[in-house]
């Protein structure tokens, strides 16, 4: 599909002020919505995004469950959210956060551009990244057949055999995308049924190119220059088998981006941030969290956006009124 993106290239950093009312770390659905609400609430807002506005959303080819849009690409939805936030005056800077320093009055954020910015309120909306299998061969073959981004790399596996590891929404969604390009898609899942939404699961079951390897985990990724096979183990019988593939796409869950915050914020055993129900304020006053990075049951674009709205609104009520 030929398309022309006009907006989300890495931009030269805008000239930043040193002080803001609210700094939001992360420019996905949660961060951009928090920015929209805070900017509309007359706060001076800075969003710091290290990669691409939209976050994980931009990896989703088609979003079908964001209300108001029957079909919209994740990328287009991200563009709209960014435009919406900046329309009301939020500033977006593409930079990586190196350090966060807290005092009772101010939250200071050190950026990799060499700048330090501070604000009264901080919103952590850093989201999450892909979880690794941590098996032999995974690191070695990353970029040589091991991938975590079907939309980026799917084209290299045109008419080839690929495996998708995982049984959740991401795994099945990406599997369906890959089935348009690849010769075959084997879904390897450790359970005997999919956790993905029924509508996605049904599409996968009906797709003639997709096949399922149940109750199986990957023990090793093998190959010489490129991936050539997976060593699988059946979780019931403990028998091992080898599956020939040219590529493997791994979607076995997410890990929260909270390394910078774990030493001063309360997180759960997986690293997700624990927040006050109803306000999304963290264990540190003036620091809020929103989106996938928060400990919760459902991680969708719609409730990431809702988190952003709630965090920004509660921050305004408590600290600016």
């Amino acid at each position: 599909m030929v398309f022309f993106d006009t907006g989300d290239a890495f931009k030269a950093p805008p000239s930043l002020d040193t002080s803001y009312d609210m700094i939001i770390i992360g420019g996905g659905a949660a961060g951009l919505t928090a920015a929209l609400y805070a900017a509309r609430g007359s706060l001076k807002v800075l969003v710091v995004e290290k990669a691409v506005e939209g976050g994980q959303m931009v990896l989703t080819q088609e979003v079908e469950n964001y209300p108001g849009f029957l079909h919209i690409s994740g990328d287009e939805l991200a563009d709209k959210m960014r435009e919406h936030a900046t329309h009301f005056g939020a500033t977006i800077a593409n930079a990586e956060v190196l350090d966060v320093q807290l005092s009772s009055e101010h939250k200071r954020v050190v950026l990799d551009t060499g700048q330090t910015v501070e604000s009264k309120v901080l919103v952590i909306a850093t989201g999450a990244g892909h979880r690794h299998l941590n098996v032999p061969g995974e690191r070695e073959f990353e970029g040589r057949g091991v991938s975590y981004c079907a939309i980026c790399d799917g084209t290299f596996f045109r008419d080839k055999d690929v495996a998708v590891i995982g049984g959740g929404n991401s795994a099945i969604d990406e599997g369906l995308y890959l089935a348009k390009l690849a010769k075959s898609v084997k879904v390897v899942h450790r359970r005997n049924s999919l956790r993905a939404e029924k509508i996605l699961a049904q599409r996968a079951f009906q797709n003639p190119k997709m096949d399922f390897v149940w109750n199986s985990v990957v023990k090793q990724i093998k190959g010489s220059e490129q991936v050539s096979s997976l060593l699988l183990e059946n979780t019931q019988t403990h028998e091992t088998s080898e599956l020939s593939v040219d590529g493997v796409f791994i979607y076995i869950g997410i890990v929260p981006h909270t390394q910078l915050f774990r030493n001063f914020l309360q997180t759960d055993e997986s690293g997700f941030i624990v927040t006050q129900c109803g306000t999304l304020e963290t264990s540190v006053p003036g620091v809020f969290a929103a989106g996938d990075v928060v400990q919760k049951e459902l991680r969708q674009i719609v409730n990431a956006a809702a988190d952003g709205a709630l965090a920004a609104t509660m921050a305004i009520r408590k600290y600016f009124e």
């Binding site: 398309f3 989300d8 990669a51 939209g54 990328d75 980026c152 790399d153």
Partner: peptide, 14 residues
């Protein structure tokens, strides 16, 4: 790069 890769522009521009 591939045209559909959202992270690629960052690497090209750098």
């Amino acid at each position: 790069v591939t045209p559909s890769c959202p992270y690629c522009p960052g690497a090209v521009i750098m």
